[in-house]
Design a protein around this nucleic acid. Structure first.
Length: 494
RNA sequence: GGCGCCGUACCCAAGUGGUAAGGGAGCAGUCUGCAAAACUGCGAUGCAGCGGUUCGAACCCGCUCGGCGCCUCCA
C-alpha cells in the first residue's frame, strides 16, 4: 500500500489517505451535464480523477469509481426546446460524444456511470427521508431543503450563512423560507420531463441526484468525492447537507477538487465564450489521434491538479517537444546492440526513477514532479546507451517507462509516428476529399521510404552528397525525418 | 460586502524554513560529409514589493501592488 496523501478541501489540509476498507477505495466524481460538447476544462477534471483512480489501483487498491451523468436539468430542457426534440435525444447524443472524447484522451470508463433519470426512485426516497426528519419542506409540489436546520452548513466551503446572505443575489422564488434553501424536487411545467412523486409530477433538483447516486452505489459513507473547484459551493456543500442530514453519518471523507483551465488567465467557460471543445482540438491537430491524446495528457499533467492551468497552443507544442525526446529514446531502445557493460548501472537508474515517481505521486499527485522523474530517467539512459547496453536491458527500460507511464496514460504507443494512416504518394489529392485526421502531412509508404534510403546510402558511400541531400530534402518535404547512425545505417521517423 | 486562489528565469513549472527540480526555447562546444539525435557547458546572488520573526525564508507573520475565482448554472 502506498502512503498517499491528498489535499482535503473539507479539512483544508493535506492528509494521509486511509480508506474505510483496507484494500478497497470507493470514490465518486461529479461528471457532466450532458447538453453540449465537453471542453478542455472537463478534460482536465476527468483526467485528474482518472489518474487518481489509476494510481490507487497501481498502489494495490481495488477501486470502485462512480462518475455520474446529469441528464435532467434546465439547460438540457432549454436545448431540447430550441431544437424541438425530446430531452433524451440531446442527452443520448452528448453522452455518446462524451465517451468518444474520453476514449481519445485515454480516460477509462468508470466502474459505473449512473444517470439521474435512472435513479428517480432513490431520489424520491431520499427526499422523503429529509422531509420526515424535518429538514425539508413541501410547497405546492416543490420540495426545499431548509439550510437553517443543518447547523454545519458551510463547513466544506468555509462560509457562514450570514456572509452568504449579504451579497448573494436575491432569489426570486418566494416560496422558499430563506433564499439559501435549495430545491430537492421541482414541480414540473407542462412539456418538461416529469415523474410521479408523493408531491405530484415533478423532477429532481440538481444536488440531490449526486447524494442519491453516490449513496446508492457506494454506501452512506465512502472515501473520496471529487470534482472541479467550482462545485465546492454550492453543489458539494448541498450534497453534504442533504446526505449527512438524511443519514446522520459522515458522507465522503476526502474531498478533492481540481483547478480550472484558463485562457489568458481567465476561467474557461461557456458564458465567456473562451472555450475549446475537446473534439475541436483533435480536429485541428496536425498530429494523429493517439499522439494528440498523449500531447494533451502530458500538457494537462505538467501542472499540479490543484492550481490553475493556462491553455495555449504554445503549451501544447512544448508538451509535444518534450514527448519527442521520450519517443526518440524509445526508438533507440528498440535497436539491438551487443555488449552489456553498463546494464548494472541501468537497473540503478530504473530503481531511482521508480522510487522518485512513487514518492512524488504519493505527495498529493504531484504529476509535474513525476514527469521530472521520467525526464531524469530519460537523460540517464541516454548517457548510458552509448556505453553498451544489452538488448534485454533495453527492453527492460522500455517496459519500465510503459508500466510507470500507464498510471498517467503516457508512453503507451509503440511508435511516436504521425501517421495512423499511410497514404502512398500519388494517392493523396487524387480523391480531392479532405484527408483524415493525422494525415494532413500525407506521407510515403514504408517500402518507398526504405527504397529511397537505400539509394541515399549508396550515394553517400560514393560520396555523392548532392544526391544524398536531395533525397533528404525530398523525404523532409513528406514529413520524414532521417538520422544517420554511426554504423552507416539510417533511422527515420515521421 | 464575505470566502478563497495566484504572482518563481525568455516561456511553462516544481519546491512551502536549510541555502532555487524539471521541461520548452536560446547560445556555445563534442560528434557528423552535411544534418538530426545524443552528450557537455552557459543561463534567476534571487523567487511581485516593503517590513518583521529566525542562526537561517521563495517558503512563517503583517502591509502594499498586480492578476483571477466563488458567493447564480458551471469541471
Amino acid at each position: 500500500m502506498s502512503r498517499l496523501t491528498l489535499f482535503n478541501t473539507l479539512t483544508g489540509r493535506q492528509e494521509v489517505f486511509e480508506p474505510i476498507e483496507p484494500k478497497h477505495v470507493r470514490m465518486y466524481v461529479c461528471g457532466v451535464t450532458v447538453y453540449d460538447y465537453c471542453h478542455i476544462g472537463h478534460a482536465r477534471s476527468a483526467l485528474v480523477f482518472d489518474v487518481l483512480r489509476r494510481y490507487l489501483e497501481h498502489s494495490g487498491y481495488a477501486v470502485t469509481f462512480i462518475k455520474n451523468f446529469t441528464d435532467v436539468d434546465d439547460k438540457i430542457i432549454k436545448r431540447a426546446n430550441e431544437q424541438g426534440v425530446n430531452c433524451d435525444v440531446i442527452t443520448k447524443k452528448f453522452i455518446q460524444a462524451y465517451h468518444e472524447d474520453m476514449t481519445k484522451l485515454g480516460i477509462r470508463a468508470a466502474t459505473e456511470e449512473p444517470k439521474a433519470t435512472e435513479h428517480i426512485a432513490v431520489i424520491v426516497q431520499l427526499t422523503e427521508r429529509l422531509i420526515n426528519k424535518g429538514l425539508a419542506y413541501v410547497v405546492d409540489g416543490d420540495v426545499y431543503f431548509e439550510v437553517a436546520k443543518y447547523p454545519e452548513y458551510g463547513r466544506l466551503s468555509k462560509r457562514r450563512l450570514e456572509d452568504l446572505q449579504v451579497g448573494a443575489r436575491v432569489d426570486v422564488n418566494e416560496r422558499k423560507h430563506r433564499p439559501m434553501d435549495f430545491a430537492l424536487w421541482k414541480n414540473s411545467k407542462p412539456g418538461e420531463p416529469a415523474w410521479e412523486s408523493p408531491w405530484g409530477l415533478g423532477r429532481p433538483g440538481w444536488h440531490i441526484e449526486c447524494s442519491a447516486m453516490s449513496i446508492r452505489h457506494l454506501g452512506e459513507t465512502f472515501d473520496i468525492h471529487g470534482g472541479g473547484m467550482d462545485l465546492i459551493f454550492p453543489h458539494h456543500e448541498n450534497e453534504i447537507a442533504q446526505s449527512c442530514g438524511a443519514t446522520g453519518k459522515e458522507f465522503a471523507r476526502y474531498w478533492v477538487h481540481n483547478g480550472f483551465v484558463q485562457i489568458n488567465k481567465e476561467k474557461m467557460s461557456k458564458s465567456l465564450g473562451n472555450f475549446f471543445t475537446i473534439r475541436e482540438i483533435f480536429e485541428k491537430s496536425e498530429w494523429s489521434e493517439e499522439v494528440t491524446g498523449e500531447i494533451l495528457r502530458y500538457f494537462l499533467l505538467s501542472t499540479h491538479y490543484h492550481g490553475p492551468l493556462d491553455f495555449s497552443d504554445q503549451g501544447l507544442r512544448e508538451a509535444k517537444n518534450a514527448l519527442n525526446g521520450f519517443y526518440d529514446l524509445f526508438q533507440r531502445l528498440d535497436e539491438s546492440e551487443a555488449g552489456a557493460t553498463v546494464d548494472k548501472e541501468l537497473s540503478g537508474v530504473i530503481e531511482r526513477c521508480r522510487g522518485t515517481f512513487h514518492s512524488r505521486m504519493d505527495d498529493d499527485l504531484n504529476t509535474p514532479e513525476a514527469l521530472a522523474a521520467f525526464q531524469g530517467m530519460k537523460n540517464d539512459v541516454n548517457k548510458l546507451l552509448g556505453q553498451g547496453v544489452s538488448t534485454s536491458a533495453r527492453k527492460t527500460v522500455r517496459k519500465e517507462f510503459r508500466s510507470l507511464g500507464e498510471t498517467l496514460g503516457l508512453f503507451q504507443l509503440d511508435t511516436w509516428q504521425f501517421r495512423p494512416v499511410v497514404v502512398p504518394i500519388g494517392q493523396v489529392g487524387e480523391t480531392g476529399a479532405a484527408l483524415p485526421i493525422g494525415v494532413t502531412r500525407s506521407g510515403l509508404a514504408d517500402a518507398e521510404i526504405e527504397e529511397l534510403l537505400r539509394e541515399r546510402n549508396q550515394s553517400r558511400r560514393r560520396k555523392d552528397f548532392k544526391r544524398a541531400d536531395e533525397i533528404r530534402t525530398l523525404l523532409a518535404n513528406q514529413g520524414i525525418l532521417i538520422e544517420d547512425k554511426p554504423d552507416g545505417t539510417t533511422r527515420w521517423k515521421r
